[in-house]
Amino acid sequence: MSGTADEPESIPPQYLAARLHRALAEDPRTAELGVQVHIRGGVVVLDGEVTSAERKQQLENTVRELVPDARIHNEVRVGSSAQPGPSEELR
C-alpha cells in the first residue's frame, strides 16, 4: 500500500478507514471482507467477527504495520468455527 508513510492525522478519517479496510481485504494473511474499520477520535477501531484468535491478532498486526503510531482498539470477536448441525426437517 503506497502512502503508508503518511501520518494518520494527515489523512481524512474516512480515507484512512477505507485504505485500511482495503488492505485487510487484499492482504493474503488476513483476506477479511467482513471486518469493519472505523476511525474514532484518532483511534483505529476494528470490528467484526473472525474464526480464530490468531486471525484477530493478525488483523491488528497488519494495521500496525500500515500505521505504526496509531492507537488501535481491536473489537473483533472470535466466533465459533464449528460446522453447522444437521438440517432441520420441516413438516
Score class of each variant (00 low, 15 high):
Lys56Asp: 02
Leu90Gln: 09
Arg91Glu: 15
Val63Ile: 12
Pro12Phe: 05
Asp47Asn: 11
Val50Asp: 11
Gln14Cys: 00
Leu20His: 01
Ser87Lys: 08
Asn61Cys: 00
Glu88Leu: 06
Asp47Thr: 03
Pro86Cys: 05
Asp6Arg: 15
Leu66Asp: 11
Thr51Glu: 10
Ile11Leu: 14
Ala23Arg: 10
Gln58Met: 03
Leu90Gly: 01
His73Asp: 14
Glu60Gln: 13
Arg22Ser: 13
Ala17Tyr: 01
Pro86Asp: 14
Ala23Thr: 06
Ser81Ala: 11
Arg19Cys: 03
Gly42Ile: 04
Arg77Asn: 12
Glu26Trp: 02
Pro86Trp: 07
Ala31Thr: 09
Val45Gly: 09
Leu66Ile: 12
Tyr15Arg: 14
Val67Glu: 13
Gln14Asp: 06
Arg77Leu: 05
Gly3Lys: 09
Leu16Ala: 14
Val67Asp: 08
Gln83His: 03
Ala82Arg: 12
Leu20Phe: 00
Thr51Phe: 01
Gly41Lys: 14
Ser80Glu: 10
Leu59Thr: 04
Val37Glu: 14
His73Lys: 11
Glu54Ser: 09
Asp47Gln: 12
Val78Cys: 05
Leu24His: 06
Leu46Arg: 12
Val45Lys: 08
Ala70Lys: 07
Arg77Tyr: 01
Glu7Asn: 09
Arg55Thr: 00
Gln83Glu: 09
Asp27Ser: 11
Thr51Gln: 10
Arg40Ala: 14
Leu90Met: 07
